[in-house]
Design a binder for these strands. Structure first.
Lengths: 340, 340
DNA sequence: GGCGGGCGTGTGAACGTGCACACATTAGGT
DNA sequence: ACCTAATGTGTGCACGTTCACACGCCCGCC
């Protein structure tokens, strides 16, 4: 004799079928589309309302072998996640695209060693049909785990050790850093420094490379100050260090708008005029850029489009289309304002 | 005769059992704990590695009737989500607590009408054991949907129409707004205005109520300016409006630090000294507060703790403990700095 | 009038897992 | 020597769903 179940158990398709006096096969058909008579359809609709039925998607996934969900994994320690204006925009861009295709975006944050393991388990547990990875570092242990995952994965950005054949989407950090530095030079600046952050990530490292390429033989390693975070207060500290090392500095490329805003404060404290004495450029074209005095010249980072593109890449692989396995780089217009 | 399956299908517990020459029951036991001999354990471990087995968590959930996951639903339009410094902190606080209990936090963003429906379906589909809702508006349609959900739900904040018996966690917006306004008055300010945002949310509306309570008979409705977003640029605009309406204004309570920072800019443009001519206070104690000149006096919002507390509430209900159905309010210390 | 085909419905077999139970083996106590 | 307990292992069923198939019905056509 079966145990009596708790009365609060969820209604199943059987309950609906019983209440409507029709077989569960037909109930399934009205849910998923198929030939059903109007009478049966009506009876089932009434029964569903009566018993308060909601389909158990987990059970459905088990048999259909797909979940209509895509994981969006953010690999960030606390601080970066809160401060970075791009991640939110990438996420919303991805969500909009997935939503249009009727996919559920499932956002997982990795904030500790334990999270890494649990999230890996989750992603390989059949809850998602595809995965988007944001801000992976070189040598991130999760890269190995995901490589042997049965699920299509797309990276935003491309860590150096990303195995070949895994698509990614990003921006040309090297090229845009080079370009904006060159334009800084074109305005007559001679002693140009850089405040670099997150150099353990490809995005951060590539901006330094572009900066170096632009300066060529005029590149001076001591004028690149590395700070841990893309953060206002580190912009202040980084600029002070630069001023110590080269009091006659007349140009600064900051790795983000937040850093640039901090740099502006440090310059103001030191009595320098921007852009008269020192030209300052940022990166991101975030809300910081219009919030400073003067407004920042910067590189527009198409974060929303990046997210949409990553989602699109996953969706295309889900449909079985073959996609460009070499990755996609989106253009980054330079926005010229008053700060340089 | 069964069809031959695609060779790329995922390994199941049966494959492991076959490879190890042991029944699947024993494999299940080494996965979930139970009496298993060392030899069998070793053979199974080898077999798992050989066939590349990862348990199908969806199937496990189906039989165990629980998912070890908690949904974290953010009900925000684009802009607010990107600008609000609290949501990220609440999320990370919740994640830390859930992670400690070995629960997976699953973050779902609602950004459109379509999202509302898909997320409701997801939440009622058996993928989560509990739900945390952030920043619900009064009359949000999702409140009704969630009310009849079989899953324990906790709100962060408490919309006016939240049905009784549903626990929530928040801060005393009314009380802290009243307190900081009173301290503004205590410094001798006589003509005090407010820049209010998101008044369709309980948090925003309650801050106006507290402001009004503090001023009592001196309250002047025209000195409350409502703006749509907790955003720097709206702070600028709000402050300009206040200056238009009351050129002799000498105190301002802004509904967030970002608004306060904007107000500082507008005041600077108008040639007023802060705090000499006008006292300004904010709300949140976010990174904005130390980024302005002068630093902001503000209300510290314990966002991380709010998230942790919400997660704890869900976990306790999951364990069957009975929790305070009237909700929890966390203390909000006032931080007194230079701006007032 | 038999027959093929569209329509509407019911039925059984999966999907991959955990769990209760049955059973087998061994050790230890009376 | 027998019973009991502890330790291992195998088997059947259930979870809630979809899907392929089979069945019956009615229509129109040769």
């Amino acid at each position: 004799m079966p145990l009596s179940r708790p009365p609060s158990r969820r209604a199943t398709i059987h309950d609906v079928a019983a209440a409507a006096g029709i077989s569960r096969g037909t109930v399934s058909r009205v849910l998923n589309g198929g030939y059903v008579s109007p009478q049966a359809r009506a009876a089932i609709a009434a029964a569903i309302a009566q018993v308060g039925y909601a389909p158990n998607t987990a059970a459905r996934n088990l048999v259909t072998q797909r979940s209509q969900a895509v994981g969006f994994v953010v690999l960030e320690p606390h601080t970066l996640f809160l401060e970075d204006p791009n991640i939110g925009a990438i996420m919303l861009g991805a969500n909009a695209t997935l939503s249009d295709a009727d996919y559920q975006m499932v956002n997982l944050v990795v904030d500790s060693e334990r999270d890494t393991q649990r999230v890996s388990r989750y992603l390989s547990g059949g809850f998602v049909d595809g995965v988007i990875i944001v801000s992976a570092r070189t040598h991130d242990p999760i890269i190995r785990v995901l490589a042997q995952l049965a699920v299509p994965t797309t990276y935003v950005g491309h860590p150096r050790d990303l195995p070949a054949g895994i698509p990614f989407v990003g921006i040309d950090n090297t090229g845009s850093a080079k370009l904006i530095t060159q334009r800084l030079m074109a305005t007559g600046r001679r002693r140009i420094g850089m405040i670099a952050a997150a150099v353990d990530r490809d995005s951060g490292a590539d901006r330094v490379i572009g900066f170096r390429q632009a300066l060529g033989s005029r590149f001076a390693p001591e004028l690149v100050v590395e700070v841990p975070l893309y953060d206002y207060s580190w912009g202040v500290k980084g600029m002070r260090t630069l001023l110590d090392r080269e009091p006659n500095i007349d140009g600064v490329f900051a790795g983000s708008d937040a850093l640039a805003a901090g740099a502006l404060e440090a310059l103001r404290d030191a009595g320098r005029q921007v852009p008269a004495d020192v030209g300052v450029v940022g990166f991101d074209d975030s809300s910081w850029a219009l919030r400073t005095q003067p407004h920042l010249s910067t590189v527009r980072q198409p974060a929303t489009e990046v997210g949409a593109c990553a989602a699109d890449l996953v969706l295309r692989r889900l449909r079985g289309d073959d996609v460009d396995r070499n990755g996609v780089l989106l253009p980054t217009p330079i926005v010229w304002r008053e700060s340089a």
